[in-house]
Structures are given as C-alpha cells and as structure tokens.
Nucleic acid binder design. Structure first.
Lengths: 143, 143
DNA sequence: TATTAAATTAGAATTATTCTAATTTAGATA
DNA sequence: TATCTAAATTAGAATAATTCTAATTTAATA
C-alpha cells in the first residue's frame, strides 16, 4: 500500500482519504466491481462519499491508465485494476465476470477487407457461459 | 420483403405497420443501429411511433433469435440483424462498428483453470481501432 | 501558515431503457 | 364480412446508470 500511495502521488494525484479508500478497494481486486459496488463499499467508511467522487476517480484512473473499463455487461460498466491485457468470461445468468489470461493476439488477425477500413489498436475477447454456481442451479432446476 | 413478412407471420408475429417498418429498416442493415437510430428512422414514416414499440420489437426479435444485441459501445446497445456469429471492430473516435466475418473459434480455447469455473457457450471478439475517416482526421490534426 | 488548484459534495440533469395502463388493431373465428 | 380477443401501440411516467453544476473543502506546495 505504501508503494501505491507513492505511485499515485508521483503521478500528480491528490491523495484524499476517499480516493485512497477507492484505490485500496480496487488494489488487487478481481471481482470486476461496478461504480455502484465501489460506492457502497466506500460509503461504509466515508458515509458522505458521493457517486461523483467515485466516477471522477474512476475517470482519472482510466486517463492515467491504471484501470480498465469493461464493456461486457449490457447493464453497466465494470472496472478492473488489472491493466495487463487479458480477456473476460461473463456468466449469462448472474453476470459474474472471470479473468482469462491467455494471449490470443497471434490468432486474432484481421481479414484484409476490414484492415482496409480500420486500423486496429487492440482487441478483447468476451466469452460468455455459465459459472459453476449457475451450472449447479440449472441442474437442480432440470431435476 | 415478401419472404420476410411470411417468415415473421410464421413465427407468430403480429405484423403491424410499425413493426414492419422496423423489420424493413433492419433487414440487411449493416450499420449496427441503436434503438435511437431505429426510432428516429421509423418516426419519419410513423410520427407517433414510441420508443416502447422499438424496444418491444427489438426484445421480441432478440427472443426469436432474429437479431443480435451488441455490447461493445460503452454508451448504448447496438443491434445487428445478421445473426451469423461474427465479430466487430469499433472506432474509438466515432464509434462506427464494422463486421468481421472470420471464424476464430478454433484459436479461442479456454485455459483449464477457467474451464473449471465456467462452461463457455460462446465468444465474441471486440476489436477496437480507428476507422478510415478518423485516421484521416488524425493525420490532418497532426500536420 | 497561507495559497490555490484540485477534489469533494449534494443534488440536479441527462441519457438509455423499462414500465404502466389505457387504447387500438391484426388476425383468428363465427 | 363482422366480431372477438390477445397482442401491440401509445404517451408518458419511472428507473437506472452516469454526468454535470456550483458551492465548499482540502492536499500539497511555497
């Protein structure tokens, strides 16, 4: 956490307690929280925190390339503090998101006809499926 | 268009003029319209059409597997009448979406550790990049 | 310690989407 | 062809996610 603080101060971040709480919450978090998730967690410690602060901080972190915004859930955005390029799988039942650390970039070549229209800068694979919990629920239902 | 009508009537669709206009608009459309795009287009012909009708029809079409909902633009959903599985590339400047007809499924194997947590049912690749128009704009800016 | 640019806040505004409940209508049936 | 009814349409309200506003506070520097 010490390094975290040093790191953000270095980047010109003004380190407020709210912001620090958000950073702490995100640090190493693999649950892909939404803004709402972050807000309600921080609110426990700083009951006056506002959504604006959460969104502002997320925006700043995005701008500084410290978090990824994940567009895989049709309902809302999720955030991921792991900025190493990776992919995701979302459960079509409960929307749980899992991380996939696998480099598919070699295989993901664009066909020529589209390379003429777009210059790619990156790619991301959305897998969708059923998480283990929802698989079990499905099985129970079917019996 | 004749077949289109027959096809939907077969499926138990009640064919109202508004709905028909939506079907017509979507048929063969590769622009990945949003609900708003569809609404404003239909409104030209049926000025009293409501968003509810557009969303209802989209929902029905989704249920009947006649269109795909695309979650690639963080701002809103896009719709695609091409239900053949394919992938997309979105311009990070103007949000234009292009289709990529390429089967990557062989390459997109899930690593074991995640296959234990999720049973995959599908996948979709989001490419992001710059469309040709925005590439040109960028070049102009840089000069 | 004073200064100030940046951050926080409550709450309003905006945008996308969904819901409601009254009305209309397509298509089946008599 | 007229009647019936379940399904579709509508205006507008409601909801949910996100962004904006403008007044206030504060972290970090000088």
């Amino acid at each position: 956490m010490k390094e975290l603080i040093a790191k953000y101060r270095e980047k010109g971040f003004k380190l407020t307690p709210q912001r620090l709480a958000i950073l702490k919450f995100l640090n190493g978090n693999t649950s892909h929280p939404t803004a709402e998730d972050i807000y309600s967690n921080i609110k426990k410690i700083y009951p006056t925190v506002s959504f604006a602060t959460v969104y502002n901080t997320l925006q700043t972190l995005k701008d500084k390339n410290e978090i990824l915004e994940i567009t895989i859930d049709p309902q809302k955005k999720h955030y991921d503090p792991n900025i190493k390029p990776h992919h995701h799988i979302i459960c079509i039942e409960c929307n749980t998101i899992g991380d996939i650390f696998e480099d598919y970039s070699e295989a993901l070549r664009l066909p020529d006809y589209i390379a003429m229209e777009f210059k790619p800068v990156g790619s991301h694979v959305d897998f969708y499926g059923l998480c283990i919990k929802c698989q079990k629920k499905e099985r129970r239902k079917r019996q």
